[in-house]
């Protein structure tokens, strides 16, 4: 696994934890523990996303545009082809 893939996997894990708690909160909107946990994961994933983007380019249109945005790989690309 490349350094980029490792970082992306870590970011996906943090985003997933935050997302799962977000969905849970849709049907448990007053669960304070879940809200706190969601906040923690959301903050950590924002930090890691910023680090990833500083190294490998933008993940969303607000964090980069033009050449940086267009740069391969796109999410479905295969390593050997890009």
């Amino acid at each position: 696994m490349t350094e980029r893939e490792k970082l992306l996997k870590q970011l996906s894990a943090l985003q997933f934890a935050s997302w799962e708690l977000h969905l849970y909160m849709d049907t448990h909107p007053y669960d304070k523990d879940a809200m706190e946990m969601n906040r923690r994961y959301a903050r950590r994933s924002e930090d890691l996303k910023a680090l990833f983007e500083s190294k490998y380019g933008p993940l969303s249109s607000v964090s980069g545009t033009g050449e940086q945005w267009l740069k391969n790989p796109w999410p479905w690309d295969i390593k050997e082809c890009v």
């Binding site: 607000v62 479905w76 295969i78």
Partner: peptide
């Protein structure tokens, strides 16, 4: 909707 340039879970098929 806004796009995030990554998959929710990685797909790397050899």
């Amino acid at each position: 909707f806004q796009y995030e340039k990554k998959l929710q879970y990685p797909v790397n098929i050899k």
